[in-house]
């Protein structure tokens, strides 16, 4: 996560929030929220190396498989549930979205926007995109759910989520004009 991206996401989290970060990676965002915004909470992560990195950082981390659900978390037990670059790795992406809304008062989701113009260009040329944002070949990508900014709007509506803010992120900068075309990352903030 670049500093710009981290700051853009952190800006969406209110001061003092109780935060659950699903797929928290090495815990850098949670550590930032703890230090700069007086947040508390937990990260969930599956990867051993990342779990260790979180412990080193002093971030509460729970080694759980998100595809097995969020049953250990009580309803509405967090102010903010983050899914930053997590959704695209989940088999049950829709279930996890609903679970996010159950567990958190607010959800913040960010994922690679497949409709970003360089990706469209690549598809037009007949090839799956391989970019800085989507650096994998089609046959070995961990991104098993590829979707677009617009796709998420549809999914959010289908699940009755109230999107309170949405924008694109490109080079760490907020993109409000044509985000589905102009941004490599889609960001949504919603309430259940």
């Amino acid at each position: 996560m670049t500093n710009d991206t981290l700051n853009a996401i952190a800006a969406l989290v209110p001061h003092g929030s109780r935060v659950l970060d699903l797929g928290c990676g090495d815990g850098v965002l949670l550590a930032h929220l703890q230090q700069h915004k007086a947040c508390t909470g937990y990260g969930v992560e599956l990867d051993d190396t990342n779990v260790h990195a979180c412990v080193q950082r002093g971030v509460n981390v729970l080694q759980l498989n998100l595809d097995l659900g969020l049953s250990v978390f009580a309803d509405q037990s967090f102010d903010v549930v983050l899914q930053i670059d997590t959704l695209q790795h989940l088999r049950n992406a829709e279930t996890m979205l609903r679970e996010t809304a159950r567990v958190g008062k607010t959800g913040i989701v960010a994922f690679p926007n497949f409709a970003h113009w360089p990706n469209r260009l690549s598809i037009l040329q007949g090839r799956m995109p391989v970019t800085k944002r989507l650096p994998y070949q089609w046959y070995d990508t961990p991104n098993i759910r590829v979707g677009t900014f617009k796709d998420f709007e549809v999914l959010a509506e289908k699940n009755g989520l109230h999107v309170t803010d949405s924008f694109g992120l490109q080079n760490g900068q907020r993109v409000d004009t044509w985000p589905n075309l102009m941004a490599g990352t889609a960001v949504f903030k919603f309430n259940a």
Binding site: Y42, V55, N60, L62, Q63, L64, A74
Partner: peptide, 11 residues
């Protein structure tokens, strides 16, 4: 978690 305690868990 129900008691909002600080906890880390490695499986």
């Amino acid at each position: 978690l129900d008691n909002q305690r600080d906890v880390s868990y490695a499986e």
